[in-house]
């Protein structure tokens, strides 16, 4: 269902609609939270904040307008939750100077952010429809069948394009000067 239908169903107290909202936007809201929290994010905190976002959606469904898209609203709630969490964490859990900080160090964080910026630039530089496909599927975390319908692509074609695009990105990142080895997040 589209956002209009989804909001109207939420306002009719449909929990199926709440599940649908999480299926469609869960990944996206997690991405907003994750990027806002950055290296400060612990998995459990991220999951709790993500559940806060959708509980907020449910609690405030009466305030939503069916005429407005849901994505920006969820993004705003997620960013606010992230800000509140960072503020609370700073006030109540200062990192002792004598203990090692498990989070990545500043230099590593900077390198990782730089690589991410390069990745984004490479994706933005793709030709259509690959560019829109990558942005919607990966960055916006949209379901593939929705993206395929609206780009008029066969799912097999879309998967093929994603596969080729990923290979190309990997080759370009390596060519441009090094890729960080994958490390488990603390």
């Amino acid at each position: 269902m589209d956002d209009r239908d989804l909001i109207q169903a939420l306002q009719a107290d449909s929990r199926t609609a709440l599940r649908q909202a999480m299926e469609v936007y869960g990944g996206y809201a997690a991405a907003v939270l994750g990027r806002a929290l950055g290296s400060q994010a612990a998995k459990e905190d991220l999951e709790e904040l993500l559940s806060d976002v959708f509980v907020t959606l449910w609690n405030h469904r009466g305030d939503l307008s069916p005429e407005r898209p849901l994505r920006p609203w969820l993004a705003a709630v997620a960013r606010n939750r992230a800000t509140d969490h960072l503020r609370r964490r700073r006030d109540t859990h200062p990192v002792p100077e004598s203990l090692p900080d498990p989070a990545p160090g500043p230099e590593e964080q900077a390198e990782r952010r730089e690589t991410e910026a390069r990745l984004r630039a490479l994706v933005e530089g793709m030709d259509e429809p690959d560019r829109t496909l990558f942005l919607r599927y990966y960055y916006q975390e949209e379901p593939l069948d929705l993206v395929c319908r609206e780009l008029n692509l066969r799912p097999s074609t879309a998967r093929s394009r994603l596969c080729r695009g990923r290979k190309r990105l990997k080759a370009q990142l390596i060519q441009e000067g090094g890729v960080l080895d994958a490390k488990p997040h603390a």
């Binding site: 869960g26 997690a30 991405a31 950055g38 559940s51 959708f54 975390e141 990142l173 490390k183 997040h185």
Partner: peptide
């Protein structure tokens, strides 16, 4: 998370941890 799948494929460490979206859904409900 699609983005985490992409990072894995590109051998990049994730910018943030990957949440368990099924667990979050159960919690919200």
């Amino acid at each position: 998370s699609h983005m985490h799948e992409l990072w894995e494929e590109l051998d990049l460490s994730p910018l943030y941890p990957e949440p368990d979206l099924d667990k979050v859904m159960a919690r919200v409900l």
